[in-house]
Design a protein around this nucleic acid. Sequence first.
DNA 1: ACCCAGGCATTGG
DNA 2: CCAATGCATGGG
Length: 262
Amino acid sequence: MHDGVLHRAVGGRELRIAAARGGVDVDPLDSDTEPVVSRLLGLEFDLAAFYAWAGGIAGEAADARPETPDAAGARGTTAESSLAQLAARFAGLRPSLAPDPFEALVTSITAQQVSLRSAVAIRNRLIGRFGMRAGLAWAFPTRRRLVDATEQELVALGFSRRKADYVLGLARSELDLTALAALPDEEVKARIVQQRGLGEWTADWFLARHLGRPQAWPAGDLALRKAVSAFYGDVDVRAAGARFEPFQNLTAHYLLATFLTP
DNA sequence: ACCCAGGCATTGG
DNA sequence: CCAATGCATGGG
């Protein structure tokens, strides 16, 4: 981001996206850049259906037990209506999808266990060392570019030796990352988890923030667990996902959005 | 000097 | 199948 404008490298060229009244102002699109813009802006999410559903369950809840305050009610709202309120509060919010699968997975590796600030610092050094510049944008290092990197080079950027091995192992693996898009959620997870260093958390975020799968639900995520706990109490977060069927991905992002604003 | 942060593999029961 | 442990950085 520079002065409120998003700069993204696409095929070695710089693409700019700026907020504008009623939408965005974007450089002219072609067959390469259009899908990137669509993913970055999360255009494939069906917000209207999500909001209609959120409003619907809030209404049902009010009808079902108009005067029975439960644990959530004690905090001033029912569990169901709180989601409707989030939909209204963040109306228009769309999860931004990572346009590239390798970028999505390496980004997740950097974010494993450590704070997002630490992850960003390390990732920025990775991009500065192995990425390519296009105008004000920096292209994320490609898989090919990292195949010949060494563990020592990545450790020098702040990766643990283990995470450096994860990244190099992924770059050098036989896994066809593009082909994953054609597979159902569970099959995608199975193939990702098979890779050393990529666990269920990473696979769930890949489904959520790269493939944009509507039912992706990163139940192991620390921040999501905190958000779910704040809204719904001490529940089994993985099982609670069924409650948001088939909008788990949008629900997760609307819950997490509460951490981003005062 | 600690402790925690949007995990994971390894080891041992 | 579940508990305990090391990992390395950035911020409090």
